[in-house]
């Protein structure tokens, strides 16, 4: 995390005072945001995490049940299915989106006419409202007569997949939809980061005889690592939390083929009114995501190259 050692050993009063001022100045920067964040986000979060150890139906008394909710997870087949599906979704979405968005950004970083237009077009899917996107996407992948399967048939595929109507293909369909919708978003971050690479680096590399691949490999990629780091974390977290897209596109179906952890949490809370158990599932998700995030932060020092620090 680029953790700098805090100079905690304040020996003289003036030094201590300077440290205090420093802290206060820093807190004053954080305070406006922290205040709103703590009241409206952190407090509810702490409350609902506490619920993981309780039993509550949303109306009657809350009672302490300790680890009961977590024990229940073992026998919950839907939880196991949802966990597996979530991991599938993350494993599919994260690398695909990163590769596609980096590719788009590289392509649009070329000196070409009309790149503003292309950039805007590529950003379109991210802006579109989900209800419309889900309908359109299902339409294009319509099993019998949708454009995608028509194309596949002309290419000689006799039995094209039934996409969202099939338990085997529903998840890949959702993954494709999410990559399509999300890559414009991450492309923007990559584009901004690409603009931050000093042109002189490329020029001197050229003088040294580096070819295009070498320049990409030894200049672009390393210089993009802060952005890549940010994107990989945000994308991982948001993929673990996938909800809206699945709710609207497949509602977890066929059967439970695309049921994911957040959808399960939601159903447990809103169909079974087991808010404690629902929080317990969220805790598992939280632990999973935080575990991965912390590992990513730990690894950051090895591969992310900030221009100083």
């Amino acid at each position: 995390m680029g953790i700098m050692k805090l100079s905690t050993r304040a020996t003289t009063p003036s030094k201590r005072r300077r440290q205090l001022t420093k802290n206060l100045v820093a807190y004053s920067f954080i305070l406006p945001n922290l205040l709103g964040f703590a009241i409206f986000t952190l407090v509810p979060i702490v409350f609902s995490l506490g619920l993981a150890f309780m039993s509550w139906d949303g109306a009657n008394e809350i009672s302490w049940v300790g680890l009961e909710n977590f024990k229940e997870l073992r026998d919950d087949t839907t939880f196991n299915i949802a966990l597996r599906n979530t991991l599938w979704y993350v494993a599919g979405t994260v690398p695909l989106t990163m590769i596609c968005s980096l590719g788009l950004a590289m392509l649009l970083n070329q000196p070409i006419r009309g790149r503003n237009i292309f950039r805007t077009i590529y950003f379109f899917p991210y802006v579109a409202s989900l209800v419309a996107v889900a309908a359109v996407w299902n339409m294009l992948f319509f099993p019998s007569a949708g454009p995608v399967n028509e194309l596949l048939r002309t290419l000689g595929v006799d039995n094209p997949p039934r996409w969202s109507a099939s338990i085997d293909w529903a998840m890949p369909t959702v993954v494709m939809a999410s990559v399509w919708k999300g890559m414009g978003y991450y492309m923007v971050i990559y584009l901004a980061a690409l603009q931050g690479i000093p042109a002189i680096l490329y020029e001197s590399a050229k003088i040294d005889g580096a070819n295009a691949w070498q320049r990409f490999r030894y200049i672009t990629l390393p210089m993009l690592t802060p952005a890549t780091f940010f994107i990989s974390i945000m994308l991982t977290i948001s993929s673990f939390k996938v909800f809206d897209l699945i709710l609207i596109m497949t509602n977890g179906g066929p059967g439970r083929a695309t049921n994911v952890l957040v959808l399960h949490t939601y159903n447990v809370a809103f169909r079974r009114f087991e808010f404690g158990y629902s929080s317990a599932i969220a805790m598992v998700l939280f632990a999973l995501v935080m575990g991965i995030t912390i590992v990513q932060f730990y690894m950051e020092k090895r591969w992310v190259e900030y221009s100083q620090v």
């Binding site: 509810p44 979060i45 609902s48 909800f243």
Partner: peptide, 17 residues
């Protein structure tokens, strides 16, 4: 703490909020 909050789905703390 900031990062952790991103890791919690909103659906879970919607009611306390």
């Amino acid at each position: 703490a900031y990062l952790g909050s991103i890791a919690i789905p909103w659906q879970v703390y919607m009611i306390p909020q």
